[in-house]
Design a protein around this nucleic acid. Sequence first.
DNA 1: AATTCGGGGTC
DNA 2: GACCCAGAATT
Length: 371
Amino acid sequence: MGVDRITGEAQHITAKISAHYVDNARNLPWRVPPKLSASGQLPIPYHVWLSEVMLQQTTVAAVIAYFQKFTERWPSVADLAAADEAEVLAAWAGLGYYARARNLHKCARHVTENLGGVFPSQEAELLKLPGIGAYTAAAIAAIGFGQRAVVVDANIERLVARLFAIDAPLPKGKTDIRIGMDALTPNDHAGDFAQACMDIGASICTAKAPKCELCPVQTYCRALAKGDQERYPVKPPKKAKPLRKGRFFWIEQNEKLLLVTRPAKGMLGSMRALPDDGWAAGTDGHGQSPMDGDWQIHENIVQHSFTHFSLEVDLAVYQSDKIVINKGDNKETGLDDALWWPIAGIEDAGLPTLYAKAVRWAVKHKLKDHK
DNA sequence: AATTCGGGGTC
DNA sequence: GACCCAGAATT
């Protein structure tokens, strides 16, 4: 396996990576710079938690603006807990993986109401909180509280898999990767070390075309020695994405658009949305309109790619001054509890990107002219 | 152990 | 287009 034999070099690797971080750390809004961190300064736990949740399966570039928006609007975990879930979800719109936002809000309320507004500092306690798994618990404990914790994210997975040339395909290979990272992790400033590894993974030890000539541990890298860097980490083959078809319904009256709230569970859960024809990951939509009217059909206006399927969207448009939504009359169409949203302020509705694309198409094609 | 969750960057 | 990303929760 190689991990056992390489651990003799671990302290040298650790020293090289730590030294490299001092002058090459990325400057990020949730981060304490390495020089201040060396003198004992820790970041605000609320900021560490918020950034780590936003960063789950999400790039730094995509997160920064959302992090700024959230910390301005909700400066403390108690402020976030006091917000309505709908506000938080609307603010999260566009960032994806919306279960994160639902769990974020749930976690904020738990910490505020049951833990006195103080985040736990121990990894095992953090792991109990909603939306916090193995990675995030270790990251918050190490970065936010200076604890020694073994942090393994996608960057570190790649860096360690290459350093030790770990051949077992993921997820099985994660066991060896964790052993390797454990051997490298120092007792002090484990948080800085983890962030140093992540920075190297993000800017040097990249998935494609890694810049090994810039790497502070290139002389220790077994993958580089074999000329095999891009083979690591070894991953299983991916499944093909099916192509689905679905239809959105643009129902407009007096410059307002009819929006629904999606069911709390499943895809885009609890998010505001345009009414649709029942499309889902496993099935095409039925195409039938939710009410009688003079519908104009625009085919394939949006193509959208999700993680496990792609979607082609039709837009059916009905504009009228005589639409009445009676609560209780719409058990089959899902329009109960729908709301009329001013089109001029549609940017504030908190629509996920899929629906925002359809709205942009409609505005661009000036649907009002068809009235 | 597999599947289900978004969306944007990159090549 | 295909692949990747500071993964977690569910089945």
